[in-house]
Design a protein around this nucleic acid. Structure first.
Lengths: 342, 342
DNA sequence: CTGAAAGCGCTAACAA
DNA sequence: TTGTTAGCGCTTTCAG
């Protein structure tokens, strides 16, 4: 172990309390001794061990974030911004990746609880509510994503897809599209439901239509988009426009479309959700429903901060808006929906 | 604060030592009391606070990783794999992002030291060696990237670019390329030097040539690639092939190339370094020098684990190999290097 | 087999 | 202004 306050105290011939006071800039200490001790500290390069501080005051200044897929740029950017907010206040971020595995999610929660982190942002929310209560019981506030419900100590940040999705559908309708397909996210995740509900609501509201075989499940990754799109291509007819649960999925669709010579947007319009960085870089640039990572991260932080000490208070419901970003992957509907060959 | 061993002890009418023994599965405890206490623990849902454990035994079971750019997929994947290795052993990962700022790097190191993490993987290694010694002095092992030097307690993982880069140059030469440009990384980072040195060595070794105006600095990001390429385009002549410090840079080049109607690889061959996931997805798929994230992460872990207790031992030098992945962004050199119009 | 006590490194209440 | 002491929550000798 490294050097401790008591040893410094011994060297300086004072008590550990004085050392502590110097370190923390208390003014109940003579200028002379302060200087002397500061020099000593520099000399022996003493660095206090703040684990002890945290044990003492009950706070660890560490927050946890549980992410379903760290390679998804949306989450990466979110983590980055969230971490930035934390370090501003000398806090730190523990990152846990679950790869969409329920057991890894549970395990991450368990470890965060053992560590007594000061708060958990749970972005891998699954349908079967896991043991979030255990955290709250131990005075750890939690913020979840897209669960659309709160409880004592547990806040929730939802993305308000509805307005944006309606805009998107109106936009597609104005382009002449009538038949829209949808590639959703993995079914176990709450946000998948939020996204598909928003899609169906908007479809109805804008007087458009879809059909069962055009609704396929993806996995929020590029490969899932490609695979799902293959399924849709296997149908007798195909939609003239396709909305996907996230941008990566859309990119997967575009990739498959390219490879079979389908032109975008002439033959098929595609739109995603998220607006990750590469969406503006792929060819053609992707029309998408943007979710601001800055706002999202800020709300996560706020939810955790607001929870404060009293976790018997019900958590808050936060909503981050979406905005439609129109690029080149969407265009006028082809004259009539063509058959897929093969 | 939540419930503690002592309270449990009081409830059960035993001592805290006994509770501790039950929790840790010691066999010096009667089956009967063990059962009784276990039930009690379940009943009151007691969860031990492992901060205290860590304070006691001097280990935090937390590792830190310092990353220059968390949105770079190479690092994201690395972090993900590294985190996976850690959780296998009930360890955790503190992530710090520096955005290439020296002061944020220093600050991250300072915080990791205050926390007394059990090891630090420092992937944002800058040229001016920062205060790594302070960590070692406090018994925290460190592993750096591409510094090509080790010292007591500080290991280093280099990417062995040389073999792969030579392969790549030989490959380009065989395609008829003679004049190769290079877009490097930000100059402050040690890995930039490693990458450019490998490039120049290989150029010489394969009897190829470059010229000063074709050597431009990028920033490891897409936009930097685009900007750097613009500079190269401004030259009277341009190279027939371009190698970049990483894939993101290459993608930036491709983007710019597209936008001015330059065909890849017919008019210009492009190759990157890293082999991130999207490199196989962009159009055309990118030829690149692959660095295995799995091997890389494993070596980081190994370096930290091997350091063990005795940090007076010199660190090890590790090397992860690269392999040339040939895709569609490279092809035969155009008949003669054309002038750029404009 | 179980308990008492000390201690990890620090801070804060209380005394001096 | 400085020191003494207790204690954060746990484990671990050492007694019993």
């Amino acid at each position: 172990m490294s050097i401790s306050v008591r040893e410094i105290a011994k060297m300086a011939g004072v008590s550990s309390a004085t050392i502590s006071r110097v370190i923390n800039g208390s003014d109940l200490v003579t200028e002379k001794t302060r200087k002397r001790i500061q020099h000593l500290i520099e000399e022996v390069k003493f660095v206090p061990n703040n684990r002890a501080i945290h044990l003492k005051n009950g706070k660890s200044q560490i927050y946890g974030i549980i992410i379903p897929d760290l390679t998804n740029p949306f989450f990466t950017e979110l983590v980055k911004i969230f971490e930035g907010l934390l370090v501003e206040n000398e806090r730190e971020l523990l990152v846990a990746n679950t790869d969409f595995h329920t057991n890894r999610t549970q395990d991450s929660l368990r470890r965060m609880l053992l560590r007594r982190v000061d708060g958990v942002a749970m972005l891998a929310s699954e349908l079967e509510v896991p043991s979030l209560d255990a955290l709250v019981r131990n005075e750890i506030p939690v913020v979840t994503a897209d669960r659309y419900r709160t409880s004592p100590g547990i806040s929730d940040v939802v993305v308000d897809f509805s307005a944006g999705m309606n805009q998107m559908m109106a936009y597609l309708r104005d382009l002449g599209h009538k038949n829209i397909g949808f590639i959703g996210g993995s079914s176990g995740i709450v946000t998948s439901r939020a996204r598909s509900v928003a899609f169906f609501d908007a479809i109805v509201k804008q007087g458009l239509s879809s059909r069962e075989s055009w609704i396929v499940e993806g996995n929020y990754r590029i490969d899932g988009g490609s695979t799902a799109f293959e399924q849709i291509l296997a149908c007798k007819e195909r939609p003239t426009a396709l909305v996907t649960a996230n941008d990566l999925t859309a990119i997967g669709v575009m990739r498959m479309a390219h490879s079979i010579g389908l032109r975008i947007p002439q033959d098929l319009s595609i739109a995603g959700i998220d607006d990750i960085e590469i969406s503006d870089i792929v060819n053609p640039p992707l029309t998408t429903l943007r979710i601001s990572r800055h706002e999202y991260a800020r709300m996560l932080m706020e939810a955790l901060d607001n929870a404060g000490e009293d976790l018997t208070q019900p958590g808050h419901q936060y909503a981050v808006p979406t905005s439609l970003i129109i690029r080149k992957s969407t265009g006028p509907a082809p004259k009539e929906s063509k058959k897929t060959e093969g």
